[in-house]
Amino acid sequence: MTLRLELFVDDVNVSLSFYRDVLGFELIGENASYKSLQYEQSRIAVQDIRTLEPGHPLAEAGKRGLGVEIVLEVGDVTSLHQRVQAQWAQSTELKRQPWGLKDFRMTDPDGYYWRISERRR
């Protein structure tokens, strides 16, 4: 079983730049309004929100991703945190959590909330 997230965004190219250049995802497929990306075994896609059918629940106005925390587990969270901090102001400091793992939090250009965590051993 695999899980892939599809995030509906205002500007596909801005999102592509963020996920590729800031977080290090690799572009693996695309068309004009849809980009598929991969980071190790994790896959996401970004799609222009205007492509949704009228009346689609995700097309309604409101905060994107409300009630969801997207967690990306990586092998070297310290290096990724340094990379993100150098390019993206909307990220927190790296912190060891009470459950023992180090992580940091951030929002993407569309307000999706991410927790970037070291992998559980």
Rank of each mutant, 00 (worst) to 15 (best):
M1F: 12
M1S: 15
T2M: 11
E6Q: 08
E6H: 10
E6A: 05
L7C: 07
V9F: 01
D10R: 14
D11K: 09
N13D: 14
N13L: 12
V14M: 13
L16I: 04
L16P: 01
S17Q: 07
F18S: 10
F18V: 11
R20E: 15
D21T: 02
D21K: 00
V22N: 02
V22T: 08
L23M: 10
F25N: 08
F25P: 06
L27W: 01
I28P: 05
I28R: 03
I28H: 07
G29L: 06
N31V: 05
A32D: 14
A32N: 13
A32R: 09
Y34P: 03
K35Y: 10
K35D: 12
L37I: 01
L37E: 05
E40K: 06
S42D: 09
R43H: 11
R43I: 11
R43A: 10
I44C: 02
I44G: 01
A45F: 01
V46Y: 02
Q47W: 07
Q47S: 12
D48S: 10
D48K: 08
I49V: 13
I49A: 11
R50M: 15
R50A: 15
T51Y: 01
L52G: 06
P54K: 11
G55M: 07
G55W: 01
H56F: 13
H56S: 05
H56W: 03
L58R: 03
L58I: 06
A59C: 09
E60Q: 12
E60G: 05
A61S: 08
A61Q: 13
G62W: 15
G62Y: 04
G65I: 03
G67R: 04
I70R: 00
L72D: 01
E73R: 04
G75R: 02
G75L: 03
G75V: 00
D76K: 08
D76E: 14
V77K: 06
V77Q: 00
S79V: 02
L80M: 09
L80G: 07
L80A: 00
Q82K: 11
W88P: 05
W88S: 08
W88Q: 13
Q90E: 14
T92G: 07
T92Q: 09
E93K: 13
K95S: 15
K95H: 04
Q97M: 14
P98L: 12
G100W: 02
L101M: 10
K102H: 13
K102D: 08
F104M: 02
F104T: 02
R105I: 15
M106I: 09
M106G: 05
T107C: 09
D108M: 07
D108E: 00
P109H: 11
P109Y: 12
P109C: 09
G111D: 10
G111L: 05
Y113D: 15
W114R: 00
W114Q: 01
R115F: 03
S117E: 04
S117W: 01
E118G: 00
R119F: 01
R119Y: 00
R120G: 08
